[in-house]
């Protein structure tokens, strides 16, 4: 009987260790596959001799694989944190319209400051905050379970935001010519070291800070009043948490557009693997989200090579049906 808590603890440590080992493996796999043929074992030689392949590896594949990891880890982690803060496993940044909020922020920024790229992730984060504020205001009150209400509102907000993005692009035009479909079905085709440098600091900062919220989010699971009685300053926690989520989602979406369902399914998988303790789920979500996104991106750029699929299309095709299945199986709790 007394052994049990140690077992759970050990199991979680085991899962985290396995995920920590999986990530470099996925990065390696991602770095060795692509439309430009380079055998995995040839990589060191190609790099040393500085052939054309070296340019492909250094300037195209490496930044892309790393960006996939950063974006995927951020989306999964912000998804898990959002679920914890809103106390429902049914939400994720994409489904709530946060991703489109980020896109709207980014599009507006590009319309007015086309030549200031560093503002893009921040404008996107502001867009997320705007949508979050609207959602929480609209979702307040009694009635259907919070998760279902939020989901419904998010689904209603999404077409409005898409239309807004479309309108801005129609009226002002995007000087960089990004299409609406880039924002709705995102991808990593634009990856470069510059984009990585623009994205990673904000994304990693938000991730590190979010990892520290695990214990407080555990308390929030009992309800906001209960969390308060357990010593959590709930108002401050929610403000800080949502701010960090906005920062992460903003950075990820500004870099890669919307890559749906990563933030929903990864936390769900982790709970199935090692229980719902947020300290475990948050850390695991980053690792697993990064790994899975690197693999999904590998598929996106090799499945129909030399053409490339938008990654968001792939994740939606894989993740959407799985989500529906879970929803039906687990029931509409939330």
């Amino acid at each position: 009987m007394r052994q049990k808590p140690f077992d759970t603890e050990r199991r979680r440590q085991g899962v985290l260790l396995a995920l920590a080992l999986l990530l470099p493996l996925c990065l390696l796999l991602g770095a060795s596959g692509g439309a430009y043929p380079i055998a995995p074992l040839e990589i060191p030689r190609v790099l040393k001799e500085g052939l054309e392949g070296a340019a492909v590896l250094l300037n195209i594949r490496f930044p892309r694989v790393l960006l996939a990891a950063v974006v995927g880890g951020t989306l999964a982690l912000t998804g898990a944190a959002l679920q914890g803060l809103l106390r429902t496993p049914l939400v994720e940044p994409g489904l709530l319209g946060l991703g489109l909020g980020a896109a709207a922020g980014a599009v507006l920024w590009l319309a007015w400051f086309p030549l200031v790229p560093w503002g893009l992730p921040l404008a996107a984060a502001l867009g997320v905050l705007g949508v979050l504020g609207l959602l929480l205001r609209l979702a307040a009150g009694e009635g259907a379970p919070a998760g279902v209400r939020l989901l419904l509102l998010g689904l209603l907000l999404s077409p409005i935001l898409s239309a807004l993005i479309g309108l801005v692009q129609f009226r002002v035009g995007d000087p960089q010519g990004r299409s609406l479909s880039f924002w709705t079905l995102g991808g990593l085709s634009g990856a470069s070291w510059e984009l990585l440098a623009l994205t990673a600091p904000l994304a990693l900062l938000s991730a590190l800070a979010l990892l520290g919220l695990g214990r407080a989010l555990n308390a929030l699971t009992l309800g906001e009043e209960e969390a308060y009685h357990l010593g959590v300053a709930v108002g401050a926690l929610k403000r800080w948490g949502l701010f960090l989520i906005a920062l992460g989602v903003g950075a990820a979406v500004a870099a890669a557009g919307n890559i749906a369902f990563v933030g929903l399914l990864v936390p769900w998988l982790l709970r199935a693997l090692g229980g719902a303790d947020h300290r475990f789920v948050l850390a695991g979500a980053w690792l697993l989200g990064a790994s899975l996104t690197v693999l999904a991106d590998l598929l996106a750029r090799t499945l129909f090579a030399p053409a490339e699929l938008p990654l968001g299309l792939l994740t939606t095709l894989l993740g959407g049906p799985l989500f529906l299945f879970l929803l039906v199986r687990e029931g509409w709790r939330g």
Binding site: A35, Y36, P37, R301, A305, A307
Partner: peptide, 12 residues
Amino acid sequence: CVNLTAEAVVAA
């Protein structure tokens, strides 16, 4: 016309 992956552009 298709979106060509960056690597295929180099390979061409």
